[in-house]
Every structure is written in C-alpha cells, then in structure tokens.
Write a protein that binds this DNA or RNA. Sequence first.
DNA 1: CTAAGTGTACTAAATGAATTAATACACTTA
DNA 2: TAAGTGTATTAATTCATTTAGTACACTTAG
Lengths: 138, 138
Amino acid sequence: MILIDYKDRRPIYEQVVEKLADLIVRGILEQDSQLPSVRSLATELSINPNTIQRAYAELERQGYIYSVKGRGSFVAENHLIKEQKRREIFERLHVLTEDARGVGITMLEFQERVIRYYGNVEGGEEDDRSDRTDKTVS
Amino acid sequence: MILIDYKDRRPIYEQVVEKLADLIVRGILEQDSQLPSVRSLATELSINPNTIQRAYAELERQGYIYSVKGRGSFVAENHLIKEQKRREIFERLHVLTEDARGVGITMLEFQERVIRYYGNVEGGEEDDRSDRTDKTVS
DNA sequence: CTAAGTGTACTAAATGAATTAATACACTTA
DNA sequence: TAAGTGTATTAATTCATTTAGTACACTTAG
C-alpha cells in the first residue's frame, strides 16, 4: 500500500499523510471505502500506532477522510477533495510562475513546456475510479 | 538582509540557505560580491554563528557561493546558477502538470492560469510574493 | 451478552536533529 | 601586529518526532 522512505528526512506521519492523500485524490481509494485500521497499518509498516493515529488525524483535519469510533476510517467525499486539491495545485503554480519570471523564463517558454509536459503522455485518463473495486488496501 | 520566520517549522539554516540562494538567483547579489561575514550575519539575525556557518557551507556545496579562508564568502558564477535554477523550475513544472492532470485539470485551464499569474504583476519587476515569504532585503 | 476490533486519549521515555555556547586555529589584510 | 575572516571541535540544550504502554468508549460478528 504505502512505503516509508527512511532516507526522507520528513516525519513518518507526514509521509503517510502525503501518500494516502495521493491515493485518495487519484481515486485509487474510493469514496467511503475503508482504510486500514490504525493498528493494522502500524503493524504493516512496522511503526508505532500513535504515528498512524497522528497521520489519520491530520488526514481528517484536511478533509481527506472521516473516522467513526468503533467502526474505522473512511475516504471522504471525492469531489470536495478534488476541489481542494485543485486549489493547492494552482497555488503551487502561482509560486512557480513567479520563480520562473525571477530567473528570466518568459511566459512563452513556460507555456511551451506546459504543452510538452501535458501533451507528453497522450490518452490521459480523466477519471480513473472506474471500477477497480479494491476496497481495503493493504 | 534577510529575516527569519520563526513560524516556519523548517530549520533556520535552511531558511537562510533558501533566502540567500533566492537573492543570488535574482541577481540582487551580484557575482563575486561579498556576503556578510559569518559572525556579522549571525549578530544581525540574533542567532548563533554556527548556524550561519552551516548555511554557508550548504550554499557552497550547492554551488551558489565560494568561501576563502581569511577573506570571506562570495557569490559564485551567476550564469551557471541560473541555468541550474531553470532546470529545477522546469522539473517542478513537470511534476505539477502531472498532478494537475491527475485531478482532472485540463491543459487549457492550466494555461489560462499561467497567463493570469504570469501577467498578473505587470511592469517586469521580479519581486512579488508578499503573500507568503518575508524576505526583507536591506 | 461476549469478544474482538475499532478510534481516541493520555503519560512517560527515548531518539535525533537543530541550535546554542565556548574555544580554538589558520589565514588575509590594513 | 591587530582585527577580521572562514573553519573546526566539543559539549550542552532545546524541541519535535517516535516509541511504549495503558486505558476507555464504541461497533459488530458470533
């Protein structure tokens, strides 16, 4: 399901948040599908349950998942998540364009790169979440 | 020259590296011009000289500056730095486009944003960004 | 009902990076 | 020579992260 990179200097809980959020945004984890329990994921990754608990709490705070005591943690509404992700991406783009201008990259050159990178992989799937019913992920 | 943001959870030396690198890339600090001494910058920022020393060592490792014992630290060759910075920016753009496609942002929409952000600050001055970083230049 | 599994909360300890502190040394320059 | 440079080293401190252990409330399958 996910792997921890111990060469990565970021905290473990942050890596878990990032990777689960990515799976959710990409639709690999479908709306309302159940996530691994705090204890089971901790066991699988050979880390402390508290660390997973912290990651889940952060994911819930950010709106990616919701947790129900006694039942488990589940993927939140996908359209809300995607909307938030869109905002985050545009914010990153805003910063990037300013950095680009700062080193003398013209808008034209920037746009050419956008076309190259965007068009690079043709046949781009727009909406995955078709039917790869893999409820719980291990 | 620069300001430390104590709300920023990143290490101080990393903030110093980022901000000085930014000043260098933008040409505000010219090639071969002398940087503040380790001790003076430490005093100015009210932090330990060791922290500045660490930042300078990192800047030298990354090729932004060069240091001469007994003389001081100086800005390295600017064109090499800018070329490397360009590559870094395009790499970030590549990742960003893939993230954008992943959440269903079309290339057209992406390009519209580029125009908006790029054209946003007219007048060709390359300093904006007042919404996030506090890079006071003295 | 019972037991197992769930999220959640709390305290204590351990770990490790970041930072500070205090010196010290080699070098350059006025 | 003296002041100012970069650099190195060791020790202590601070603080976020992580682990460890325990506990409680809840849900569900049996």
